[in-house]
């Protein structure tokens, strides 16, 4: 039998009325869910009292508002020190990887083997095709495009095996991928007024390839990926969200990388005897359109401010022959038809 006596809970034998235990109500805790109330007390934490009738339990709740507060377990102190050690290790690891990834990715990219570069390139181009569409297969256009790329890359100090393709999508964009893969999106070709503009963008992407920027990006992403796959809940939506965030933040090159690619591109155009005035005019048109056409933002927001680029392009502008013959240019324009 259980009775409330002043600040105590008296538990006594039903038959003999002999007192079994006396609990201080302020030390009593309610530890069960919605069924009959199960109580325990701080003095004898192993003891349990089950109240079948809710009336007494509710009365106790009035007497002790802390009744439903969780019981503190003694164990948690023991794990305290270990928690600090492991926590610091984790922080060091995270900060280390975050700091090392951009520092190491450059040198690692220079060391990457051709096999590895090709494999990563294949993955990225498959991703682009999955998102944006198939590559175009106009034979003559492809010949003209590959030929232009070969001419531009001819004067590179180290020869590059290039694989250039046009992806059938309205987006105005171009990508340099690992392993010498370059993907133009059709919108960019549609947007261009003359072949020199295409040559300018292509020279820029070839410069990225030659400077191993795509490989650098891949290494950086790998570092973040290790971090994410070790710590985040595997397979959960949160991980997908986080990796999408990393991709967004990290998908573009730094301004320094873009400037370096620009500088090399001017040189390539000059050495290939292709007019680089196209690059300047293209930038000028983009500058006009920027802000009005959101399609442009994605490609150009990490590039050096287009105004400055146009100035640089005009300063470096060299005369030369047209990048493509009229026939080749028409074929390239029609590559996706």
């Amino acid at each position: 039998m259980v009775r409330v006596e002043l600040e105590n809970l008296q538990i006594s034998d039903l038959q003999t009325a002999e007192l079994i235990q006396r609990w201080l109500i302020s030390e009593t805790r309610w530890i069960s869910g919605k069924g009959p109330a199960a109580l325990t007390t701080a003095k004898t934490p192993d003891a349990r009292l089950i109240l079948k009738r809710p009336t007494l339990a509710n009365k106790l709740l009035d007497l002790n508002p802390d009744l439903k507060k969780p019981v503190k377990s003694a164990k948690s102190q023991k794990t305290h020190k270990m928690a600090w050690v492991l926590g610091i290790c984790a922080v060091v690891l995270i900060v280390g990887l975050l700091a090392m990834a951009p520092l190491l990715s450059g040198p690692l990219a220079k060391m990457a083997t051709d096999d590895w570069r090709q494999r990563i390139g294949k993955q990225s181009s498959a991703q682009i095709e999955a998102f944006l569409g198939k590559s175009c297969s106009g034979d003559q256009g492809q010949v003209a495009f590959s030929d232009l790329a070969r001419r531009l890359a001819y004067h590179l100090p180290v020869s590059e095996k290039l694989n250039v393709k046009v992806i059938d999508n309205d987006m105005v964009n171009a990508f340099a991928l690992s392993g010498g893969n370059i993907r133009f999106i059709r919108g960019l070709i549609d947007e261009a007024n003359d072949p020199d503009e295409i040559a300018g963008v292509l020279a820029h992407e070839i410069a990225h390839v030659a400077l191993r920027h795509p490989e650098e990006l891949a290494f950086r992403n790998m570092g973040y990926d290790i971090l994410l796959s070790t710590f985040a809940d595997s397979g959960a939506v949160t991980e997908v969200a986080a990796s999408a965030g990393i991709m967004l933040v990290n998908a573009a090159y730094s301004r320094e990388a873009e400037s370096a690619a620009d500088a090399l591109a001017f040189q390539l155009l000059k050495e290939a005897n292709i007019s680089s005035t196209g690059m300047a005019s293209f930038f000028a048109r983009i500058e006009k359109k920027e802000g009005t056409s959101p399609r442009f933002l994605k490609y150009f927001n990490s590039h050096p401010a287009t105004g400055k680029r146009r100035e640089a392009a005009t300063a470096h502008a060299s005369e030369g022959y047209a990048a493509l013959s009229v026939k080749s240019w028409q074929a390239l324009k029609a590559i996706c038809d």
């Binding site: 259980v2 034998d13 039903l14 079994i20 235990q21 199960a38 192993d46 109240l51």
Partner: peptide, 15 residues
């Protein structure tokens, strides 16, 4: 640990 502490949960009936 005594028996009694283990088991006051027999709702005071002593059974």
């Amino acid at each position: 640990m005594t028996e009694q502490q283990n088991d006051p949960a027999s709702d005071g009936s002593g059974v």
